[in-house]
Design a binder for these strands. Structure first.
Lengths: 153, 153
DNA sequence: TATTGTTATACTCTATAACTATA
DNA sequence: TATAGTTATAGAGTATAACAATA
């Protein structure tokens, strides 16, 4: 269809090419976040807020909005829904009455845990066709890659 | 916040755990498709259709809709827009007059190529803080991982 | 009768501006 | 005055059912 890019001879750029291709392959063969989100009953923004709160703890609404790039006005219905569902609690910050903080409940943890289990079942199914040797190689490359990625930023 | 899952002692399951963590790390540190999509001027569905057509060649509209899980009625405005922008052409299938096929133009290739370059610049920037040794390790683990992933499915 | 694609339409999510209350 | 959050509202994207054209 399109003509291909010539592979860059520069070492860093060729590494970037390989990383880019890996990301495409992962997206195609292993884990497509877009498709995954569609399977949730809740819209993506709601799930992202829940995930954020479970991992960051109690936060002001505007902080969540900024970090997730959700506009402030749209936070209101999202927060309303999550409160109504029992996934978060909302309370005024005692130090600054302008600020409303939100915090995930144990129901939120249960919900995300259930999603995590489903995702992992799906992952296990996908890699289960590999040979023992390939699984071992897969594990070592995943660990090496993870170690290095954690050094970034 | 939540209590952590105990790591599974089963070998395949612990591999899945590591893969899951890697995907989270990649999403957080390297490449967040959701945020990326927001930077496109076009909505996600349009970009996905373009990407699909560039990689699959001429296709019936319903085939694109099925593969990308876009409902048929919503394909009409998407296709209209991409035709108006000069990114695809639309023509009746000579063998079956019910079918309308669409095909990416060279402008579509140019557009996606430009996006690819931007993404790679971003990737290069992110990994450029790593040491030479880590870059070498990164490259070898990416290649090993890619080789194995290509065996899946 | 079955299939491809479109039209019509209601619904959900999002983006922007103007507002209230607290600081 | 500046900031946090809300209200109001218009617009963009999506889902569903009913339809016309072709097989």
């Amino acid at each position: 269809m399109c003509t291909n890019n010539p592979n860059d001879s520069n070492k860093l750029n060729s590494l970037t090419d390989n990383l880019y291709k890996l990301l495409l392959t992962l997206n195609k063969k292993i884990f497509n976040i877009q498709d995954l989100m569609k399977k949730f009953k809740a819209p993506g923004s709601h799930v992202k807020v829940l995930f954020y709160l479970v991992h960051h703890g109690s936060s002001p609404i505007s902080e969540v909005a900024n970090d997730l790039m959700i506009s402030k006005p749209n936070m209101t219905p999202i927060i309303d829904k999550l409160v109504a569902d029992g996934f978060i609690t909302r309370y005024y910050d005692p130090n600054d009455r302008r600020v409303i903080r939100v915090e995930a409940t144990s129901a939120a943890c249960d919900f995300l845990r259930a999603q995590e289990i489903k995702i992992k079942e799906n992952l296990t199914e996908k890699i289960s066709t590999l040979s023992i040797e390939d699984l071992d190689k897969l594990n070592s490359s995943i660990q090496q890659l993870s170690d290095i990625l954690l050094k970034i930023q």
